[in-house]
Design a binder for these strands. Structure first.
Length: 350
DNA sequence: GACGAGGAGTCTA
DNA sequence: TAGACTCCTCGTC
């Protein structure tokens, strides 16, 4: 990767190695477990669901790689007169390259326009960069949700189980947590793919691939200069404040538990879920964000996520709702004026 | 049956 | 000790 004649910096080399790792493992992670069938996920305007995030990324990648990039490079080679048009278009939409330094990755040089191969490489880089950014955001979200470190080497036995439970849930893998009981993050990281397969013949290799993505992300983070934000689609790799601390207005100033380092409260957790409608909108969503009114769409899933977060496998909605009702007295949550089932309201939305 | 409300005891950081 | 978990009863839809 990278244009000829320019020597990549150390940071670039790290980034490229990381991208390779991500792309390789995404393909592995996209495999379906033996005996299970995944429905084909078509790239569409619909937001990725939690269960299908990686397949969606890969579908986008496949589509762009096999169709768009080929068409683009061929077309440009044959019709040099449209080159400038493309350049203008790319400059118009920098948000399509949301992660990396635009000078180095997003904006092709004149030489690139004269060489379709180079352009194809750059298009591939852009797609990879986009995919990597989304994966990093996913990891960041998971870290917040599970309250675990981004680096698997730092995980204790409980954290490993949380991560496995989350991965099972996220990618609809069969239950394999028992096969990896009493393993710390270090133990997990020292295992080979073969050892993963031995512990879980059905999807050990997939779990290994997902772990490798996390390891790669942690490695990249370690190599990245403090404060460098070129990879933080939000903030995973930045030493600045976490993403949730700055965006989305009133919610994050209080709700994001990762900002405070304090044990998370249920009301904070609910706000965190509400903050990620693209991931959890099917489970919990705003009815009226200004008034703080929200509805739990899938009570079992919300309870399950809360149970994972708090390491309470026996959590259910009955218990979760009891905790919510405790907030009535404290003036944190109440039932809306027009009471509806599974609908609650934050007392102080602003 | 699922959900909502609330009492009361227990656990845990 | 506060907050959350757990179990329980009772009422409503």
């Amino acid at each position: 990767m990278g244009s000829a004649g320019r020597r990549p910096s150390m940071l670039q080399q790290n980034r490229l190695a990381f991208e390779d790792s991500i792309m390789t493992n995404l393909e592995k992670g996209n495999q379906q477990p033996k005996g299970q069938e995944w429905t084909l996920v078509q790239p569409s305007s619909a937001p990725p669901t939690p269960e299908r995030t990686l397949p969606v990324y890969l579908s986008y990648f496949d589509m762009l790689l096999t169709e768009d990039c080929t068409w683009l490079s061929k077309g440009l080679a044959e019709r040099p007169e449209i080159d400038h048009g493309l350049k203008t278009e790319q400059q118009k939409e920098p948000e399509q390259c949301p992660i990396v330094d635009s000078q180095e990755i997003c904006v092709p040089t004149e030489l690139d326009y004269q060489n379709g191969v180079h352009l194809e490489e750059r298009s591939l880089e852009q797609v990879q960069t986009m995919v990597v950014g989304e994966v990093l955001k996913e990891i960041e979200t998971a870290c917040k949700l599970l309250n675990i470190a981004a680096d698997p080497m730092e995980w204790g036995v409980g954290n490993v189980q949380k991560w496995i439970l989350w991965t099972e849930h996220q990618y609809r893998l069969p239950q394999i947590g028992k096969s990896f009981q009493e393993l710390s993050g270090k133990d997990l990281c020292s295992m080979s793919e073969e050892e993963f397969r031995q512990r879980s013949p059905v999807c050990g290799d997939i779990l290994y691939a997902h772990l490798d993505i996390w390891k790669s992300a942690a490695w990249m983070k370690e190599k990245t200069c403090p404060g460098d934000s070129r990879y933080n689609g939000n903030t995973l790799l930045s030493t600045a404040a976490p993403a949730g601390c700055a965006d989305e207005g009133w919610m994050d100033t209080e709700a994001d538990s990762s900002c405070s380092g304090q044990p998370i409260h249920l009301w904070q957790f609910l706000k965190e879920l509400l903050l990620k409608p693209h991931s959890y909108g099917r489970f919990i969503r705003w009815l009226n964000k200004e008034k703080g009114i929200f509805k739990i769409e899938d009570s079992a899933q919300v309870a399950r996520l809360w149970g994972i977060r708090k390491n309470r496998p026996a959590m259910n909605y009955d218990k979760l709702s009891r905790s919510i009702r405790q907030y009535y007295k404290k003036g944190i949550i109440r039932k809306p004026d027009v009471s509806q089932r599974l609908v609650y309201q934050f007392v102080h939305p602003v």
